[in-house]
Design a protein around this nucleic acid. Structure first.
Lengths: 146, 146
DNA sequence: AGCATACCCGACCTTTGTTGTCAAGATTGA
DNA sequence: TCAATCTTGACAACAAAGGTCGGGTATGCT
């Protein structure tokens, strides 16, 4: 039960872009350095974010990536969904309506996975990148007072 | 963000044992048939459950597996933990106290993963195998009335 | 022209999922 | 008691998916 590295790096990268929102395109190298991960891998994630319309890219010198919308309008869920697909703990929850699991009657776990799924979504679908920035700043302030 | 097959099969198997609690050892073949998965793979999961003290095993004819405690005293979380390790969405949440992530200050995701982790645990640590049985029976009753 | 940067693609390694093979222990029936 | 049979236990082999990296190409600024 892990968030894949895609999800983790993706959120971290989006967060980095959120901090720099409004400063123009940010090259991938900057993000990779800040988050200590390889440029090659990050590129693949940025491609997914671009295809999902979350970031835009600019080639050439002074190019890079930037968010297409204000950080307050992008939820963490959107980012995760873009890089690693739905945050559903078990595939049988995905199918529509009555045609879920082949063995609905014997699959006890569905009750559990459903509850977990609801819990996860209530977190990631309501929290935006702007909220993340705010929480981080609050945390830093409280640490200064120690 | 998936529960691995280990977790899913593990919970399903434990659930099957819970239904048969008190009837003596249940051979792995019965469980594998009921859940439609291979005996070989299930054996490996049962070995983990045994090492975790959740089930006991008896060899030879009339042997099999059974729960060591009443289904009401075994949480789903225990089972999942035994077969696939902690349900922590990101490893950096695991380390103790202040020594977590090497880059605590740059890791925005910790806020998110922490909230998700709390949500998941509140589900799986409170729900027991007996609760699962009860929920399933309730579901079946409501379907009869349709 | 030259440089900085995104973009595409393929190779490799690690982890997870899955199945099969053989050994070891316990019960049953003669 | 002995042998046949049922069952778990350990381990190896393989396939599939995810993660990681590097090289080469396209594009656009200066």
């Amino acid at each position: 039960m892990k968030v894949s590295t895609r999800g983790r790096y993706g959120v971290n990268a989006a967060f980095e872009l959120a901090i720099r929102f409004g400063e123009g395109p940010v090259p991938i190298k900057i993000i990779a350095d800040a988050q200590q991960l390889s440029e090659s891998y990050l590129e693949q994630l940025m491609a997914k974010l671009r295809k999902a319309g979350i970031v835009s890219s600019a080639r050439g010198a002074q190019g890079g990536y930037e968010l297409t919308r204000h950080p307050g309008e992008i939820t963490v869920g959107e980012v995760i969904y873009a890089v690693e697909g739905p945050m559903v703990p078990a595939d049988c929850l995905l199918q529509d309506g009555r045609h879920g699991c082949v063995r609905v009657d014997t699959c006890a776990g569905r009750i559990i996975w459903g509850k977990i799924y609801d819990g996860i979504r209530s977190v990631i679908d309501t929290m935006t990148l702007a909220d993340l920035i705010e929480e981080k700043e609050r945390k830093e302030r409280s640490e200064e007072n120690e």
